[in-house]
């Protein structure tokens, strides 16, 4: 029983990480139909901004701020302006190819200009372990979970309780009508890219101390976030958190009780089942036909 609780608790902690990355993923999809196959690399990269800043002598807090700022500018503003904007009217697929190329570009750049070696990364919180019903969980994981939940609540409030948020939602649901209503659609889309930039930077700061900073980190994380986003509901922010947690727990339970060599298969099977029988995801709302 203790081991079962351990699996649940650990899965919850890992799931929170996936959720944090998946949130931004769904945001980009909702407002700009961007399926960002470089999302994992977006999380990998800010850690190296921070490390570079620290190597140049910045203290951790300053380096972290620089990392977030760079992530917002490069992975938010520039990503949208240089890559997404020119391609958005040409459909999803060219953009998919571009984000795949972008992920290769980011990985290779970090490898060549920083290092191919995994790097230790300073922890945001003290490396303490908490005991809970016979299970152990690190304080770091609890912080990740808290941040993920807080992010979702904050986003939920922003989207539903503020005028800005409702404008963003209108943009996501029907850009044409939104434009007619006088909503600055372009700016609303930009905001979601900025939010994604902040989220991936925070995720990077939280995850890198646990997983170490390495150029290949994005591959696993990106795919996990992708699966989490779909399971939870591709068009709902709160779906991402459910999807992430289901994925994290399921991953652990299947590796422990079913088959360790097929551990990667179970989330994919769930994904297929969800798409076939509830394509809008567990918490997603059905997409209405536009025409």
């Amino acid at each position: 029983m203790a081991s079962f609780i351990q699996l649940l608790v650990s899965g919850l902690a890992t799931g929170a990480i996936y959720a944090l990355i998946a949130i931004g993923f769904t945001l980009l999809w909702q407002t700009s139909q961007t399926i960002n196959f470089a999302q994992g690399e977006f999380v990998m990269l800010p850690a190296f901004f921070v490390l570079t800043a620290m190597n140049l002598g910045a203290p951790y807090w300053l380096a972290a701020l620089i990392g977030i700022a760079l992530a917002v500018v490069i992975l938010g503003v520039l990503f949208k302006a240089i890559i997404v904007d020119p391609m958005i009217k040409h459909g999803v697929l060219p953009l998919v190819i571009t984000t795949i190329a972008l992920s290769l570009f980011l990985k290779e750049s970090v490898k060549d200009f920083y290092s191919s070696q995994a790097q230790p990364f300073p922890a945001l919180v003290a490396p303490r372990d908490l005991h809970f019903l016979g299970a152990v969980v690190s304080l770091q994981s609890v912080v990740v979970l808290a941040v993920a939940v807080a992010s979702v609540i904050a986003l939920h409030l922003l989207l539903n309780k503020t005028r800005l948020g409702r404008c963003m939602q209108a943009t996501a649901q029907n850009p044409t009508v939104a434009r007619i209503l006088g909503i600055p659609v372009g700016r609303m889309v930009l905001y979601t890219f900025l939010i994604n930039g902040v989220l991936v930077a925070i995720a990077s700061l939280l995850i890198s101390p646990i997983y170490l900073a390495k150029f290949t980190n994005g591959e696993t994380l990106g795919m996990a976030a992708f699966i989490a986003a779909i399971i939870g509901g591709f068009n709902q922010v709160r779906g991402a958190i459910l999807g992430g947690i289901i994925l994290g727990v399921l991953d652990n339970l299947s590796a422990a009780y079913l088959s360790s060599s097929y551990r990667g298969a179970f989330p994919l099977l769930i994904l297929i089942v969800v798409i076939l029988f509830r394509p809008q995801g567990l918490l997603g709302r059905a997409e209405e036909r536009a025409v």
């Binding site: 081991s3 899965g11 980190n217 590796a255 422990a256 551990r263 990667g264």
Partner: peptide, 20 residues
């Protein structure tokens, strides 16, 4: 006899199994 994935991030299930 526990197989893990290259690039795997979370080893809690594996450690639970080993403990067991």
């Amino acid at each position: 006899d526990i197989s893990t994935e290259s690039g795997q991030a979370d080893f809690s299930a594996d450690v639970v199994k080993i403990k067991g």
